[in-house]
Structure formats: structure tokens, C-alpha cells
Write a protein that binds this DNA or RNA. Structure first.
Length: 261
DNA sequence: ATGGCCCGTAGAACGGGA
């Protein structure tokens, strides 16, 4: 079974990429961020025709998240909820569902814009409320995966040119401290459970020929509860997706999971 | 050289992304 997260940067533009990718490599659970579509414009029919059920939560212009589930392998998402009950927030950044016995939380963490911006304060507050909400869920023993665009590069090795990013949004100490607190709840970074190629990233700026120079950051993550550790057999970044025509600036992250014993 | 690109909403530039 495979679970992926991908920031599509507009599902309207990236729908052909998504359908082509899933046609080539069926993935059982797909978490999407930055769909940038209101719910009435969500391409439900095209996704269902590809064999997926889908739950989504969108708004005009910004944000928007979705969870796709491959019908023949994992069925429909159940107990779907949107947002964080501990955080009144109009921005559509969270959707959760139970799939194949796993509580799947798809998250689009705020970018923060700049450390001196009010958006940065919102980001830290958003993360604090996320931690408050997830703590009891993780402690309850439910197998859980928090998949999404965290907009945090956890360590220096997750940044190609750390000296250029020092103290900036995405790498600042308060953001990294929130990431560490998520791990402290009892979550594991799937990517770091395995040997990985040096300088593996998930996002590259559209400018500066950044992808060609592999000038990137690792900011998209799948964290899983400890009780899933023995079932996770791989975590890879689908770098190929960033090479396509008119790509998203993010590449998907794909986790392979054994079925429950 | 502190911006370069891409997207949505516009219906021209601009905010936002990261």
C-alpha cells in the first residue's frame, strides 16, 4: 500500500499530471495541498473515473486540500472532517479521514511569508494548535499519518544552501522547534527511517533554474505514529514529477506501507 | 543586481507562494 503527499499548486492546472501519475503508479492514498479550487469546481468526476474516491475542502484562490483513496484497494474515506476543532480558522488547510485503519491527516501548513510578517505569527499559532489537537490523537494509539506541505525544512541537511536561508521563514528556529514538538508527540519522519540520497528535496523555486541546480528544500513530509514503524518499508521523493512540462514547484513524497498484520 | 517564475483573479497589475 502506498500513501503520498503532493502540493499541486493548482489542481486545475495539475489535474493531467495527477491522473497520468496515478495511471502509471497507482497510489492508494493521496493527500493534495494547494488545490486552489472552490468545492463546486473540484474535478470530482475525473478523479472518480480514475478509480478514486475523494474528500476535499477548498476556497477561492488560496489553499485547499483533498484526500484521494483508491477504491479497489482501500475503499472510501470514512469519518471525514475538515479543519482543527481547537482552532477557528477560515483557511482551508486541513482535511482528515480514516482509510484502511489509518487516521490520515492532510495538512497545508501556512508559509509564513517572512519572519517579520503577521503571517509568520499565524503560522506558529497554527502549528501550536495543530500540536494541541494531535497530541491526544497520537496518545490514543490510533495509527495515524500526518502528510502534507509543512513549509518547514527540519534540519540543515534539508536545505541545499543553508547559509542563504539562515534565519528565514521555512528554516527559522521557532518553526523547527514546532516540528521537533510534533516528533515529540510520538511521530516519526518517514523519510529519515531510511537511507536516502544526499541532497534530496521536495521543493525548488521556479526561478533561478533552481531545479536544474538542485537548489531546493525538503519541506513536504509524512510523519507516522510509532505503531506504524514496522509497516513502513520505504519513503521516496518522486523527483520525476518536477521534470515534467508545467510542473508543480513541489515533488510528491511517497510512503510504502505493509497491510496491517 | 534582494529579482528572476508561476498561479489565480483579474480583465491590469498584484498578492501570494517558498
Amino acid at each position: 500500500m502506498k500513501l503520498a503527499t503532493w502540493n499541486v499548486n493548482s489542481l486545475k492546472i495539475r489535474l493531467p499530471h495527477l491522473l497520468d501519475w496515478l495511471g502509471q503508479q497507482p497510489i492508494d492514498i493521496v493527500c493534495l495541498q494547494e488545490t486552489k479550487l472552490t468545492d463546486d469546481k473540484f474535478p470530482r468526476a475525473a478523479i472518480e473515473d480514475a478509480g478514486y474516491a475523494v474528500a476535499f475542502s477548498g476556497q477561492p484562490t488560496y489553499n485547499g486540500v483533498a484526500i484521494l483513496t483508491r477504491r479497489e484497494t482501500v475503499g472510501e474515506p470514512t469519518d471525514v472532517s475538515t479543519g482543527n476543532p481547537l482552532h477557528a480558522d477560515d483557511q482551508r488547510r486541513l482535511i482528515s479521514a480514516t482509510v484502511a485503519g489509518i487516521r490520515v491527516i492532510c495538512a497545508y501548513v501556512p508559509n509564513g511569508q517572512a519572519v517579520d510578517s503577521p503571517k509568520y505569527g499565524y503560522k506558529l499559532e497554527w502549528l501550536d494548535r495543530l500540536i494541541d489537537w494531535l497530541g491526544p490523537q497520537v496518545a490514543s494509539g490510533t495509527p495515524l499519518a500526518l502528510a502534507g506541505d509543512y513549509n518547514i525544512a527540519p534540519e540543515e541537511r534539508d536545505v541545499r544552501y543553508p547559509e542563504q536561508w539562515a534565519g528565514e521563514v521555512l528554516v527559522s528556529e521557532p518553526e523547527r522547534e514546532r516540528f521537533t514538538r510534533l516528533l515529540g508527540l510520538g511521530l516519526l519522519d518517514s523519510f529519515r527511517l531510511f537511507e536516502q540520497p544526499e541532497k534530496t528535496f521536495t521543493w525548488w523555486d521556479y526561478r533561478k533554474m533552481a531545479f536544474r541546480r538542485n537548489d531546493g528544500l525538503r519541506i513536504d513530509h509524512v510523519l507516522v505514529t510509532e505503531n506504524l514503524r514496522s509497516r513502513v518499508s520505504a519513503c521516496v521523493v518522486e523527483r520525476e514529477m518536477r521534470k515534467r512540462e508545467q510542473p508543480s514547484d513541489h515533488a510528491p513524497v511517497v510512503v510504502t506501507l505493509a497491510p496491517a498484520a
